[in-house]
């Protein structure tokens, strides 16, 4: 009797877990959709910035700016974007692995690092590994706001301009598609000059990309600049850095939700399998218990006959 009851109890608890993981899956799906919409809505801004940059480049303005200067790296900043919560598969561990790798690389090159980490999971994992963190953020969830990202970006811009840091790398999970996200280390500072020029084909949104480029190239000769192309460039580079940093946060948020969605789906399926297996064992145990009881009764009857 005891065995069947124990199996039933386990089955009940697995059912409860399945309810939880199923709910989490649904929540993650809803959040993913919202995060994805935000990410798509944010593309317009980058697209417009690229368009202006393209126009400035085409009038032949000198692309010289402190943010484009490549200096020998003496002090590097690393920003790690992880999640505040677990139960999302390999999302956080991939990020931690990636950031440990880059920090190890800087250490082997004897470069001082300035580490900032967003997300409780990343903070505790790096603390466990004894890595000193200069900044910790735990306020970024599934809807990072530009107003919250801006001060962080401004601080990096200032540090870079004043020579406190010579490079900024961001470790985050890049979102390619629902089926593919990867933890990457991306250098955001110094801004890459060829990337600005090269950003045009990559930055252009599919659909009308080719025609759009063609028309802007034709039209670019006609544009006047107020006050001047150089002055606009000076303002637009920090803006484009901020928007790229913001995109990292958005990508990380979208990827986290996808990772959680996938992990919870797998957990729900696994729970369903467990329940099936436990049910089978429970039924067998119950049946054998009944058989045992019948045998006992029959045995008693036989004994009484004699």
């Amino acid at each position: 009797m005891a065995k069947a009851r124990a199996l039933d109890r386990r089955r009940r608890s697995v059912r409860n877990i399945r309810k939880i993981t199923r709910t989490m899956e649904l929540i993650a799906t809803a959040r993913f959709k919202k995060a994805m919409d935000r990410s798509v809505a944010a593309r317009d801004y980058t697209k417009q910035l690229v368009k202006i940059l393209e126009n400035i480049a085409s009038v032949g303005a000198d692309v010289v700016h402190p943010l484009l200067d490549v200096r020998p790296t003496k002090r590097a900043a690393v920003l790690v974007l992880s999640g505040n919560r677990g139960l999302c598969g390999g999302y956080n561990s991939n990020i931690v692995r990636q950031s440990v790798a880059i920090l190890g690389q800087w250490r082997s090159e004897q470069v001082d690092t300035d580490v900032a980490v967003s997300g409780k999971r990343g903070i505790s994992a790096l603390k466990f590994r004894g890595i000193h963190m200069d900044e910790r953020y735990t306020s970024f969830e599934d809807k990072p706001a530009f107003d919250a990202v801006m001060p962080i970006g401004r601080a990096y811009l200032e540090a870079y301009a004043s020579g406190k840091i010579d490079r900024l790398d961001v470790v985050y999970t890049r979102f390619h598609s629902i089926a593919r996200q990867e933890a990457v280390t991306e250098m955001l500072l110094p801004l890459k000059a060829p990337e600005i020029a090269g950003a045009v084909p990559g930055g252009a949104v599919p659909g009308g990309a080719a025609s759009g480029t063609a028309t802007t190239q034709l039209a670019s000769q006609e544009y006047d600049f107020y006050p001047s192309a150089e002055s606009i460039l000076e303002e637009i580079l920090p803006a484009s850095f901020l928007s790229r940093l913001f995109k990292c946060f958005l990508d990380a948020a979208v990827s986290e939700q996808v990772a959680r969605m996938v992990a919870m789906k797998a957990a729900s399926e696994n729970a369903a399998g467990l329940i099936k297996n436990l049910s089978r064992r429970y039924n067998r145990a119950r049946q054998s218990q009944i058989t045992g009881e019948i045998m006992e009764i029959l045995g008693g009857v036989e004994a009484l006959k004699q």
Partner: peptide, 19 residues
């Protein structure tokens, strides 16, 4: 609101990029 004052744009305005 351009950096140095206001500017109005109607139909057929010459193209420009401004701060």
């Amino acid at each position: 609101p351009l950096f140095d004052g206001q500017r109005g744009v109607g139909r057929g305005h010459a193209p420009f990029i401004g701060r």
